[in-house]
Design a protein around this nucleic acid. Structure first.
Lengths: 127, 127
DNA sequence: CAGTTATAGAACCGATGGGTTATGGATGCC
DNA sequence: GGCATCCATAACCCATCGGTTCTATAACTG
């Protein structure tokens, strides 16, 4: 999963209205009007949310008569979960591991005052 | 996990620099300067990212001499994952279930054209 | 074909986000 | 105490976001 897809999925999920829409879609496909009904916002606002969800790959849409049915596409959630799973082993890490990071290099100029340093990640490739 | 905590966790994760910082922290605690080193941004920018991560509960910080060490706190990731797990059963849903949603009510005024309707979620409580 | 329904798009607005530079505060060192 | 180092805060800029209202388009209905 490329960065920007994670970007778009996480930022789509960052909005409570959009999360509620996804939850609603677990009950089955729905029209824009139906999806908007629980919320005190205008119809274009819902359309915008759906567009965000669609671009994140979380929703697909099909025309049915004058309506457009939204359908939950959960695959990106699977991939986002996969990304988070990397951190599983840190979920219940004991507190006395706070100091586990050790100095493993002596690098350039002004060293930070503390001597608990880590290896340089350098060109960390952002995932 | 309350909404706004999910909000802050997901929006914290929506930024690639912040995700990279989290990943860096799996190697061990680090100073602000160390965390910023891989990125072509100013020091205050990193401080801001750390503040966002801290407020999302993803990072804790302790003073050590003049530095402040950031420590990964993965617990919110566990909870965010738990939220996503609700969708697990939709991850590999077969396509012919597109129509699985059935009309289960005949409600108010203008019915959408399609007859594949769902039960009204009404006052869906946003999770 | 005219009208109605369902939705999308355009234009706008205030708030927020990520970035900057400049400055201030806390701590360690001589 | 004075200075250097590490970091945070303030003030600002511009882009994006979530919302609005108004209008346009697409498809059924009579």
């Amino acid at each position: 999963m490329p960065h920007d897809q994670l970007d778009s999925v996480f930022s789509a999920l960052a909005d409570p209205t959009r999360r509620a829409i996804l939850q609603r879609l677990t009950l089955g496909d729905a029209t824009v009007a139906q999806l908007g009904e629980p919320f005190a916002v205008s119809q274009p606002a819902i359309s915008k949310h759906l567009k965000v969800l669609e671009q994140a790959g979380l929703v697909s849409r099909t025309r049915v008569a004058t309506s457009r049915l939204s359908h939950l596409e959960a695959q990106p959630l699977k991939e986002a979960t996969a990304w988070m799973q990397r951190y599983k082993k840190y979920w219940n890490e004991s507190f006395d591991k706070l100091d586990s990071a050790l100095a493993t290099f002596q690098a350039t100029s002004p060293q930070p005052a503390a001597d608990r340093q880590n290896t340089e990640p350098k060109a960390a490739d952002h995932e």
